[in-house]
């Protein structure tokens, strides 16, 4: 009895050894095994859904299946940390968000450098950020809101998605440009903040056009949108002026960017980029996105790098102006 156990063990161990010592195939054709997409944010969120939409069609264009691995936590720190440590061979990617890539590193130790450690490969889309308030609040527009905020001396509060998150950053910029006191109450993400706003516990909250419930609450008049942080008005909300129209030079959006670890060979990045561009045109993919209320607006290559750099710098300015201590 004892002996057969030992033999079995020996067989299992040597089999294990075999797989480790198998010689690497010469001049491996990429991709020759499944591709992993890390989602550094929570399950069910827009990054998760987008990743799954990508994973469900990518195999048609790259010849290998793609799968999603959720690694939430630490505001993107854990998942992006795993991407940084992954082998730069094009088999590990992540669906990054601009908040943890280009905002948080200014103010806290994320354990990575967004430019030295990662390559942005493909931005699926970006959704502009908006400022929402209850429909029955006395202020009818942004101007009146700012006037009321100045008069109240800090009584009108913003429910934010977290300190130095998207909506807090938006408020820092608005406060700096308008000189109005706009204190924020941090919540654990957009959902709880929106709920506190709907319940009247805080007066404003951030949202993007695809945030659950925003469109229907807006149509029914339950909420009012004071401004949208984009260069032009958002088609679903044609009556909502941009912040630029209202005197605040603010562009802020939530982005979904496929990231690769730094050091990934250029030819593999090119293969990925090409396949992902085809994904963006795929019928099924477009249908999945349409149901979520968004569409694919791909940005790749140099243009993408330029855009995220610009965002990184502009966020830095926002924090600097707000008197926040910047890390680098």
């Amino acid at each position: 009895m004892r002996k057969s156990w030992k033999i079995a063990l020996a067989v299992v161990l040597s089999l294990g050894l075999l797989t480790f010592t198998a010689p690497p195939a010469a001049a491996e054709k990429y991709p020759s095994k499944p591709i992993k997409i890390i989602v550094p944010l929570g399950a069910g969120g827009s990054h998760d859904l987008h990743s799954r939409a990508v994973a469900s069609v990518l195999h048609q264009y790259i010849g290998q299946p793609a799968y999603v691995q959720l690694m939430p936590g630490g505001g993107g720190k854990i998942g992006m940390g795993a991407l940084k440590r992954a082998k730069p061979d094009g088999y590990t990617l992540a669906m990054g968000a601009n908040s943890h890539l280009y905002m948080s590193p200014h103010v806290k130790d994320m354990g990575f450098d967004p430019f030295k450690d990662f390559i942005p490969v493909f931005q699926i889309n970006e959704l502009p950020y908006m400022l929402a308030t209850l429909g029955n609040q006395p202020w009818k527009n942004f101007k009146e809101y700012i006037a009321a905020a100045k008069k109240s001396k800090g009584k009108i509060k913003h429910g934010s998605t977290g300190t130095y998150g998207l909506s807090h950053t938006m408020m820092l910029k608005i406060a700096y440009d308008t000189k109005a006191p706009l204190p924020h109450v941090p919540f654990r993400g957009g959902g709880p903040a929106m709920k506190a706003m709907l319940g009247g516990h805080v007066q404003t909250a951030g949202a993007n056009p695809a945030t659950g419930g925003v469109l229907s609450n807006y149509k029914s008049g339950k909420i009012r949108i004071l401004g949208v942080a984009a260069a032009k008005r958002f088609p679903l909300f044609p009556d909502v002026p941009t912040f630029r129209e209202q005197g605040v030079d603010l562009l802020l959006s939530s982005k979904r960017i496929v990231m690769a670890p730094a050091g990934t060979p250029k030819d593999r990045i090119d293969i990925l980029e090409k396949a992902l561009l085809k994904v963006a045109k795929d019928k099924t993919f477009k249908r999945l996105l349409r149901k979520m209320g968004v569409k694919a607006e791909p940005v790749v290559g140099e243009k993408l790098l330029k855009e995220v750099r610009a965002e990184y710098e502009s966020n830095k300015d926002i924090y600097k102006n707000a008197g926040v201590k910047i890390r680098n």
Binding site: A43, G191, M194
Partner: peptide
Amino acid sequence: LTFGIPGDPSAAILMGAFIAQGLRPGPSL
């Protein structure tokens, strides 16, 4: 379903599934 604010993490995923099916949460759903 009524506000698009999930009660807990598994409800958050269910909400994602509703959204992915074009059933956008909100009072009018």
